[in-house]
Amino acid sequence: MTPANDTFDGTFPFAPRFSNAAGFRMHYVDEGPASGKVILCLHGEPTWSYLFRDLIAALSGGYRVIAPDHMGFGKSETPGDRTYWLRDHIDNIEKFVLALDLNDITLVMHDFGGPVGMGLAARHPDRIHRIVSTNGPTPFGQATLFDRLSANAAASPWFQWIVRAESQGRLKPVLDELGFNILSTLKLNGFENHTRINDTWLRAYGSRFAVPADSAGAIGWAQGFAIGAHRFEVPDAAALDAIRSKPALAIWGDADRTLAAEHFLPLFNELFPLAPIHRLTGIGHYSLEDAPQEIVDLIEAFLKATDASSDGVTAR
């Protein structure tokens, strides 16, 4: 587990907070005015709230920016008696959101934070105000979902490796050493901005997985795909209609080698056919690392436009 008070040489200067609502010690960042509109940032594999550090710094002047670390990631606990499937993460975030009684939420989702956030939205559409996808899938019961997942997996080096390594018994041994191969894992998925790499940055992402016992979260997400253990939340008709009415924005790095735009942006477009989509040329899967300022600017503009809209509908 990453030490609670480690600021990584000042690059992550946010006070650590913890919640036990989900039955384990979940770390989260909570910056900005308590009365501000909530921005809930949900990370994926194998990152943590550090991924959102630029966004937190930029938005917390006027918004309440909350960024939890999923079970087994970042500064959160890695309980040994839990499973780490998608539904577990949805359950955890639901309990976290209800405990803090968060409403009027803008979801900012990356990687598997997308299915987690959309799972929360399916269960509590009344608590969601806006949806922002940053290389984060928005599966929401679409009939085409599994066809798109299969087509993407056939072309993605990461998913190809997961399936092969699990069948050969190598997945867990490799990911047990994620602290030592974090850079190659990030690069395999699609990381392009090499100017961000330094010893502090490597420590921020790699130290979380210093020993095999700390890798259960990363292993669970990968293994869950390989063995078909993840279950996407399927909304009822009312939730589906409610979410479709929300303002939404998609930002996608076109150099994503794990979640290809051609397979996942249609899922977003099916839900939000009028919503703006920004495709970033040369930007990889970890788009918030590759193009932090560009993404901050796009999200800030979206928030201002929708805040200013009297009827709550995205300005087109």
Rank of each mutant, 00 (worst) to 15 (best):
F12W: 12
F12Y: 15
F12R: 11
F12I: 03
F12L: 12
F12M: 11
F12D: 08
P13M: 11
P13Y: 11
P13I: 09
P13R: 11
P13G: 11
F14S: 05
F14T: 07
A15D: 13
A15P: 09
A15V: 14
P16R: 12
P16C: 13
P16D: 07
R17L: 14
R17N: 15
R17S: 13
F18A: 07
F18R: 06
F18D: 07
F18C: 08
S19T: 09
S19I: 03
N20A: 13
N20S: 13
N20I: 00
A21D: 01
A21Q: 06
A21W: 06
A21Y: 04
A21N: 05
F24V: 01
F24T: 02
F24A: 03
R25P: 00
R25V: 01
R25Y: 02
M26C: 12
M26N: 07
M26T: 14
M26W: 03
Y28F: 15
V29D: 04
V29G: 04
V29S: 10
V29N: 10
D30T: 06
D30G: 06
E31F: 09
E31S: 15
E31T: 08
G32C: 12
G32D: 07
P33I: 12
P33W: 13
P33N: 11
P33T: 11
A34F: 04
A34L: 14
A34R: 15
A34Q: 14
A34Y: 01
S35H: 13
S35G: 15
S35R: 14
G36Q: 09
G36E: 05
G36W: 08
V38I: 15
I39P: 00
L40R: 01
C41V: 00
C41H: 01
C41E: 03
L42A: 01
L42D: 00
H43Q: 14
H43E: 04
H43D: 06
G44S: 02
G44C: 05
G44Q: 02
